[in-house]
């Protein structure tokens, strides 16, 4: 199977199978290379990519509202939610907080290894567990408050 590489800026991406290449931000001017091809070649000059370019164009029209297809990769490490996870560990929900701290470490190590997608994924996980901690903290707090008010009511009302 033909495996494609493409270049954007100074970075080289790949290998991609033809199917995977469809999900990449290939534009007519994007430089493409695969084994057997002499030089990096603009996508528009490779006949087999005509169809892909045409479909990419229609896709670009659809998603253009969300931003350009060739948006640069984030240059800042995603938020790792360490502070929130520590707070969750100590003040709320020990297990959830610990999962958060582990994910904070994952954000960090993936980012340092150059795995931007991995870092973003771990950051989403960290955010998810922080949200769960927050929700369970508030739910328990409110339930406790209700319990307390009810007990107080019983006590004032003469006690059962």
């Amino acid at each position: 199977m033909k495996l494609y590489y493409y270049a954007q800026g100074d970075e080289q991406y790949g290998p991609f199978s033809p199917e995977e290449l469809r999900n990449e931000p290939i534009q007519p001017g994007t430089l493409i290379w695969y084994q057997g091809l002499k030089n990096w070649t603009p996508a528009s000059q490779l006949e087999e990519l005509n169809e892909l370019l045409a479909s990419a164009k229609t896709q670009a029209n659809v998603v253009s509202a969300e931003g350009p297809l060739d948006a640069p990769a984030p240059s800042k490490m995603p938020k790792n939610y360490l502070i929130e996870s520590i707070l969750a560990t100590i003040f709320c929900c020990l297990p959830l907080g610990i999962v958060g701290i582990i994910n904070a470490a994952k954000v960090e190590s993936a980012w340092n290894a150059g795995d931007i997608n991995g870092a973003i994924h771990a950051a989403q996980q960290a955010k998810k567990w922080t949200t769960y901690s927050l929700i369970s903290g508030i739910v328990v707090g409110v339930l406790y408050l209700i319990y307390f008010v009810v007990m107080f009511g019983f006590a004032v009302g003469g006690g059962f």
Binding site: N80, L82, I83, T89, I98, I101, A104, A105, E108, N112
Partner: peptide
């Protein structure tokens, strides 16, 4: 402040 060093310190401390 929330980097790798801090994460390890907190993990170990806890």
């Amino acid at each position: 402040w929330t980097g790798r060093f801090a994460i390890y310190i907190w993990g170990i401390a806890i």
